[in-house]
Design a protein around this nucleic acid. Sequence first.
DNA 1: TAAGGTATGATAATGATAATCATTACTGCA
DNA 2: TGCAGTAATGATTATCATTATCATACCTTA
Lengths: 132, 132
Amino acid sequence: MEAQRTRSQEQILQLLGKLGREISAQALYVELRHHRQGVGLATVYRSLEALKLGGVVQARTLANGEAVYSLVQEDKHHLTCLQCGASVPIDACPVHELEAQLQTSKRFRIYYHTLEFFGLCSLCEHQHLAGA
Amino acid sequence: MEAQRTRSQEQILQLLGKLGREISAQALYVELRHHRQGVGLATVYRSLEALKLGGVVQARTLANGEAVYSLVQEDKHHLTCLQCGASVPIDACPVHELEAQLQTSKRFRIYYHTLEFFGLCSLCEHQHLAGA
DNA sequence: TAAGGTATGATAATGATAATCATTACTGCA
DNA sequence: TGCAGTAATGATTATCATTATCATACCTTA
């Protein structure tokens, strides 16, 4: 029965809560190691996977390919520069109604969503146009 | 000056257009190889990067970590099952207004956005609850 | 305490992407 | 047309996050 949470899962959950921000599995591993007794890297990945399936943790993939995790929270979205990778948070989020609709029309239990905008920040756009 | 497109870039662009669907860099590499004269894998990656920066190609990352590319197109979003990976397309998209706002308020030139919902499809939710 | 199952951790394997570097194609100019 | 300099290409290697493996430790229940 997977309703029970593992000790590692609890630790990770707690740390994620304390941090209040996204963090990669690798960084989590290091962080846990600093704090108290360490947790194996494999276990970090396993726990994150389980928590994700449990609907309490969400993940998104950064431009460099690594995934970052956080507690499921509504409306933390981003605007990311394709050139320099700068990522600024945005707070508006117009997808709630849609989410509710989808949940019934598509017969999916939706845990979370990601919404990301990609383009060029003004600085990079300049450089880009200049042909730098 | 990077306004000019490379031959490889043109080939890739054309193939993406013909395909009309998302495809990974690796698959593109194989595909190009089948069609005409091959293009090196490194060049595939470089070209995709350039086209992305040029605002004509968009990318998103699959659950398994690989990135898929397609021509920039509005409103091709997905609903993905965290368990089995099933990914069903959705056609509604409520973010246009927000995108327009952001473009001015955040001083970003936005090329495209991704919007993805994650959860469990009804089948997997059953299995999950059953503790399989 | 013993048995069965699950969780864990160290480590190796995988696989996509990025870096390297020598070679080739292209550009503008004499 | 020939040259020089620059950008593009491709084969290959390096990197690095993630997964798989497998033996050990733990926990629950009888």
